[in-house]
Design a protein around this nucleic acid. Structure first.
Lengths: 215, 215
DNA sequence: TCGGTAAGCTGACGGCATGACAGGACAAGT
DNA sequence: ACTTGTCCTGTCATGCCGTCAGCTTACCGA
């Protein structure tokens, strides 16, 4: 599937090369966490990795290219978010639990990858299809499952037919993503995590089932 | 309030100077719409404005500084968003109308300023307090009004007491902002604007009142 | 053991953006 | 016309970008 890892000039990377490549990715990741995206320079990444800029360009076309690589990896990892929805019940107490766990899992994932995710978000918002695709890959895993949940509830007559399942799922997921990326912001503003989570869960439950949860 | 406009080296800007300054801001604004933030260079902005890089640095410390200026202006303009909530009713049919108009107004504002807003979002997410403050200024105008609405409904016993008004308002506003910045994304993905808006309005109504709207 | 071959790395270079300065152009009042 | 203060730009040192040729290192088969 992934095929062989190749350098920019076409050679196949061996053990040592892959290690260097990975080290560069790791350092870039770190830099993204500690300084503004706009100010991340190739030379800094290279220095941090104990190598030269030329080496960086051997493995990646530019900073953006390397970021895409990191993002791709994260997206694969993010596929596990599906498990937060798939096969879960939205009825009664277990419905509330599903909502709570979805929120919990989502926020955790976002916090763990916030630096790279905000760059992906920017790229997507700027219209770059590659970043957009990655963002989709992550969000779709949840969105699709949620869409199915809504449709199922609709077929049972438990949710109004005029609700667009896809739009509802998409909006909820966008909300989760947005709140996640501004978690620190909420705190500064005086809203505590402990308050935030139940409220998000409530909104998710309301959106999916149309009803207040029974706790 | 605004005081006098000053150059970086402390002189007061006259008529001509202010015009040049404004032209630079306009050109920067345009560039932000057409190319990735990371690739916006001072020299390009200057060229577009028919002047030299040195002139740019006379009025702004760097690109970021100029962006902050544009953002500040937009934030002032955005204060009018308060009108979308303040003094509106959340009861019965007019409640549904309030929700619809809030969504409509919010999406419009975001679409009109998407380029600058995504830079503000990035800056805020990266922890830059100046950007964060501007984001607050815009969102607070709506968030505070919504928080009041929820509290009012709570005092009338129409909404559960255990809902944190601030967290709910904040989450909803974050959702609106997020969906707005990825409007194009939704379309590409197959969700039409026409479906999106009612669903957002539904979520807002559910979140604020806890009930389904009567249309 | 010993080349041979391909992988891996870097010094060096032209090109371009940055940011500072000093000096010239310009407008307005006297 | 002269002065004054604003406004703009040519120029320069500095530093990053992105590429190339060429050197070093590791692996492998004879």
């Amino acid at each position: 599937m992934t095929g062989q890892v190749r350098t920019v000039d076409g050679r196949v990377a061996g053990r040592r090369g892959q290690a260097t490549r990975q080290k560069l990715l790791d350092c870039l990741s770190e830099m993204l966490s500690s300084s503004p995206y706009r100010d991340v320079k190739v030379i800094d990444v290279a220095r941090k990795a104990g190598t030269s800029p030329a080496t960086f360009y051997q493995y990646f076309p530019d900073v953006e290219g390397a970021v895409l690589e990191i993002a791709e990896e994260m997206a694969s990892e993010g596929a596990r978010l599906t498990a937060l929805v798939e096969g879960r019940s939205w009825i009664g107490k277990s419905g509330w639990q599903t909502a709570e766990e979805l929120v919990e899992g989502f926020l955790d994932f976002w916090r763990a990858n916030d630096a790279i995710l905000r760059v992906v978000d920017l790229g997507a918002a700027e219209g770059d299809k590659r970043f957009y695709k990655i963002r989709m890959k992550i969000l779709n895993s949840v969105t699709n499952s949620l869409t199915e949940s809504v449709k199922e509830l609709q077929s049972k007559g438990k949710v109004d037919k005029d609700v667009s399942a896809a739009a509802m799922a998409g909006s909820l997921v966008a909300m989760l993503a947005a709140v996640s990326s501004h978690q620190k912001g909420f705190q500064t503003w005086g809203v505590k995590q402990a308050e935030l989570k139940p409220n998000l869960a409530l909104l998710v439950h309301l959106g999916i089932t149309g009803k207040k949860p029974t706790k």
